[in-house]
Design a binder for these strands. Structure first.
Lengths: 243, 243
DNA sequence: AGTCAATAGATTTTCGAAAATCTGTTGATT
DNA sequence: AATCAACAGATTTTCGAAAATCTATTGACT
C-alpha cells in the first residue's frame, strides 16, 4: 500500500515530506475533520517515524488544520458552521486589504502573471476527466494559484501568508462540500470578471466581486454542511473516529 | 544554571513548556534575531531532549518567530526595516477590522473587562522598579492584555488569533528597541484615550487612535533599528551568531 | 445496582543513539 | 595561487525503545 517513497524529490527531509502530504490530505478531507491521528496509523500511511510526524503535526496545529490535546494526541480540526462563517468573513476582509494594495502596486509583471494564471485555470476542467464526482486536482492547483496571483503584488509578505492560510482552511470546507453534494458551480466567468476588474484597477469592483465570490461559496458549503450533519458526520461517529 | 524545572506547573508536557519558554525568550530578545538555535545549547538551556525542542521550533516557525533551513537547523527570525514596516502596516489593518467588530458587538461584559484591563495596566510602572533600563515584565503582560481586551468582543476567533501573532512579532521589535535605546515613551494617556473612544463606541476615532499608537511605536523602533545597525548587529556578527 | 480503586492494555511523550547531512580543512593537481 | 576532491568533526535528522500518561475493565465495597 505505501508504495510511495516517504521522501519526495522536492522535500529534503522526512519532516517536510510528511508535513506537505498530511496538509494536502487534510485539505482534501482524505483525513476527515475530527479524525484522530494515531501515530501507529500515520507511521504506516506515510512511512516515517514518530519524530517527523509529531513535528509536522505541531506545525499544522499552528496553521489551524490540526488540534492537539495534551497527552491525548492529535486530531484533524473540527469543522462547524460557526467556524466556516468566521473563517470566510475574516477571509473576505483580509483579501479586501490585499487586493486593494495589490491593485495599487501591481506592475506589468503582475498583470502578466495574472493573465497567465487565468489562462492555465481556464484550460482545466473542474471535474476530474477520469472519475466523475471528484474535483480535478490540477484545477484546484490552478484555482489556488489564480487567487494567489491576484494579491501577489500587495507588497506584504505577512498579509500574503495570512491569506494563504485562510484560503487553505477554506479549501477544506469546499472539499467536504464536494464529497457530500458533488462539485460546486463552474465559475470560469466569475474568475474572468474578477481578473478584468483587477486589471482595470477598479478596486471597489474587484473587492466587491471577491466578496460575492467567497460569499457564494460560503452559502453553498454551509448548505451542504447542514445537510450532511446527520448523514456523514453521524456515520463517522459510529465508525468511532470520534470519541 | 538551569535550576528551573523543565516542566512548569501549568504545562503538561515538555514540548509545551519548551514552546512557551522559547517563545518568551525570542519575544524578549533573550534569544537574539538571527541567532542560531543549536540543539546542544537548547538542551542545556531548557533541560529537555531534542524531540520536544524540534516540535516547539516547528511550531514557532509557523508563528513566524523562527526560521528553518532544511538540514542546517533553526535560527531566530531575522529582523529588518522592511519586515517591521510590513508587520506594523498589516497589524494596523487587522486591528482596525477587529476593533470595528468589537465595538459593534461588545456588551457589558466586554466593557467591564476592558476597564479592568486598563486599571491593571495603569497600576503597573513601565520601568522595572529593581533594575532600571529594563522593561517591567508585569507591565508587558498587562499591556498585551489591554490590547487583547479591546478586540476580544469582535466575535472572530480567527481574527483574534491572527492579531495575537502579529502583536507578538511586533513585541520582539519593541524589545530590540528597548535594548539599544532604553524604554519607549510612557503612554498611559494614549491607552486611556483608546479605551474611552472604544467605550463610547466611536469606531473611527478608536481606529485612528490605534493607528497612531502603532505608528508612533513603529517610528521609534525604526529609528533605533537604523541606529543599532552597525553597533549591536555588527557585534553579533563578530560573535558569530551569524553565518 | 452503583461507586470507586486497582489494574492491564493502548497510546502518547520523551530520550539516547544511529544515520544522514553539512562545514571547514587538508592535500593533491593544474 | 587557484581549484577541487577527500576527509574529519560538528550538527541535524531520524529511529526504536523506554517512560509517562490515558482509557477501559474488573472486582471490591456500600
Amino acid at each position: 500500500m505505501p508504495a510511495m517513497p516517504a521522501k519526495r524529490s522536492t522535500d529534503q527531509t522526512l519532516t517536510a515530506s510528511a508535513l506537505n502530504r498530511i496538509r494536502l490530505d487534510i485539505i482534501a478531507c482524505r483525513l476527515m475533520p475530527n479524525e484522530r491521528l494515531r501515530f501507529e496509523a500515520l507511521r504506516k500511511r506515510y512511512g516515517v517515524g514518530v519524530s517527523p510526524l509529531r513535528e509536522a503535526l505541531m506545525r499544522l496545529e499552528a496553521e489551524g488544520l490540526v488540534q492537539l490535546e495534551q497527552n491525548k494526541g492529535f486530531r484533524v480540526s473540527e469543522v462547524s458552521r460557526e467556524n466556516l462563517l468566521d473563517l470566510m468573513q475574516t477571509r473576505i476582509e483580509i483579501e479586501s486589504i490585499a487586493l486593494r494594495w495589490s491593485l495599487e502596486k501591481g506592475g506589468v509583471e503582475w498583470e502578466a502573471n495574472l493573465l497567465g494564471a487565468f489562462h492555465r485555470l481556464s484550460r482545466q476542467t473542474k471535474l476530474d476527466p477520469n472519475k466523475h464526482e471528484t474535483i480535478n486536482e490540477a484545477w484546484s492547483r490552478e484555482h489556488a494559484a489564480f487567487h494567489a496571483a491576484l494579491v501577489s503584488a500587495c507588497g506584504s509578505e505577512t498579509l500574503v501568508l495570512i491569506r494563504q492560510r485562510l484560503f487553505e482552511q477554506a479549501e477544506r470546507y469546499v472539499s467536504l462540500s464536494i464529497m457530500s453534494n458533488g462539485p460546486l458551480r463552474d465559475d470560469v466567468g466569475e474568475h474572468k470578471q474578477l481578473m478584468r476588474a483587477a486589471l482595470n484597477r477598479d478596486v471597489d469592483r474587484t473587492v466587491e466581486l471577491n466578496r460575492l465570490h467567497i460569499g457564494r461559496t460560503t452559502d453553498k458549503v454551509a448548505a451542504s454542511l447542514a445537510a450532511s450533519r446527520s448523514a456523514d458526520i453521524g456515520a463517522a461517529l459510529k465508525r468511532k473516529s470520534f470519541k
